[in-house]
Amino acid sequence: MASTKYHQKSLSRMHSEDLENRRINRKIKKLKAEMTEISEQQEDIKQGQKEMRERFEEIDSECEQLKKETEAISDASNNVQLRLNIMLHILKARQEG
């Protein structure tokens, strides 16, 4: 009878260990799935950051181009103003004789 009790305790302990191992394995699988999801999210974030960086570079380039165009327009405006001033002086000189 002692060996039967020992055998039952041994089976019970093995069953408990088996249940514990199953729980641990489930937790490991769940953690692996979560790690995979996190990894995918990190890749998405990296891709988003890359796209944002590229967009900022495009905007910076466009800004530089606009500055150059603005300077060109300003220079042209200054030249037109100089011509108008010269023409005004010529007209005044003609009127004065």
Rank of each mutant, 00 (worst) to 15 (best):
T4A: 15
A76I: 14
I38H: 04
D75M: 09
N78M: 13
S10C: 03
Q81R: 13
T4D: 06
E64F: 00
H89A: 06
S3Q: 03
K30Y: 02
H7I: 09
K5W: 00
Q47Y: 03
S74K: 06
R22W: 01
H15P: 01
L88P: 01
I86F: 06
N21P: 00
R53I: 01
T70C: 03
L19W: 02
E57S: 11
R53T: 02
N79K: 08
I24R: 01
A76E: 14
R83T: 09
H89K: 14
Q65C: 12
F56S: 09
Q65A: 14
I90W: 00
A33L: 10
L11Y: 07
Q49A: 11
R23F: 07
V80E: 09
E58C: 08
K30S: 09
E40K: 04
N79W: 07
Q41W: 05
D75A: 13
E69I: 05
K27L: 05
I86D: 05
L66K: 12
C63K: 04
E71S: 11
R26V: 11
V80Y: 08
K9L: 15
Q8I: 15
I73K: 10
A72T: 09
M87A: 05
K92Q: 07
Y6F: 06
R55P: 01
Q81H: 06
G48P: 05
R22M: 01
K32Y: 04
K67A: 04
S39G: 07
D18F: 11
Q8L: 15
L84C: 05
M1S: 15
A2P: 02
L31P: 02
Y6M: 06
D60I: 00
E17G: 00
L31S: 05
E58Y: 02
Q41F: 09
L91A: 06
I86K: 15
Q41N: 13
K46R: 12
R94A: 10
H15T: 15
S3W: 08
I28K: 12
H7F: 12
S3H: 05
M1F: 08
E37F: 01
R26Y: 05
I28W: 03
N21L: 15
E58V: 12
N25F: 01
K27C: 04
N78H: 07
A33S: 07
K30G: 00
V80F: 05
E37P: 00
I28E: 01
E54C: 02
Q81C: 00
A33P: 00
M52I: 14
E62G: 08
L31N: 07
L66M: 09
I38T: 09
E54W: 02
E43I: 06
R55L: 13
K68Q: 11
S61A: 13
G97C: 08
I90P: 02
E40Y: 04
D44Y: 01
R26K: 05
R22Q: 13
